[in-house]
């Protein structure tokens, strides 16, 4: 049992590193990650759990870190956008987003990449419909989602970059 208190001592492992901190019980996990630990790649875009900019993978599950209190993550293993690249090498999805102009302002991108990472882990060769369902919880206002879907499709198993366009593509 974790005893009843307005503050909690928690231990969280993020991208392989373990952090021990005392937090206010009311602190949202996203504020803990950003403000307390300084991992500012995870973003905040709304206050209703609607936009997905704060998406992380916690204990293997894609979640919105603004919909959890920091103490709920006690003992959890978390992956954030900062953990996607290894030794300076971008993940296939990160590269694909760059190569297919899958981002513009880049603000939704970390959450979008976490959603896409989770999607491909669970479904390595998604259809366009499945990709769209996989990122439904992540709002992007810059791209109309077109190049995001394209970026994810391009790294899916057996990818064929055919989205029905009858025109020459520059990328």
């Amino acid at each position: 049992m974790i005893t009843q208190s307005a503050t909690q001592a928690i231990e969280v492992t993020i991208n392989g590193k373990t952090y021990r901190r005392v937090v206010e019980s009311r602190q949202l996990l996203v504020h803990f990650i950003r403000d307390t630990l300084g991992l500012t790649g995870t973003h905040i875009g709304c206050d209703t759990g609607s936009c997905g900019a704060c998406s992380i993978i916690m204990n293997g599950k894609l979640v919105k870190s603004c919909m959890l209190l920091a103490p709920q993550a006690d003992g959890a293993v978390i992956e954030t956008v900062e953990g996607l690249a290894h030794d300076g090498e971008l993940s296939a999805l990160q590269e694909s987003f760059r190569d297919h102009h899958g981002l513009q302002c880049g603000y939704c991108t970390p959450g979008m990449l976490m959603a896409a990472t989770y999607l491909l882990r669970n479904n390595p060769s998604p259809s366009e419909e499945e990709i769209r369902r996989g990122i439904k919880g992540n709002i992007c206002r810059c791209t109309g989602y077109v190049n995001i879907v394209r970026s994810i499709k391009a790294v899916a198993d057996g990818a064929q970059l055919d989205m029905g366009d009858g025109v020459a593509k520059e990328v």
Partner: peptide
Amino acid sequence: MLLKSVEYVRPDSVAQ
């Protein structure tokens, strides 16, 4: 986004 102060507890059982 910013909650009122609240206590948190994680019991080990439904009875608790």
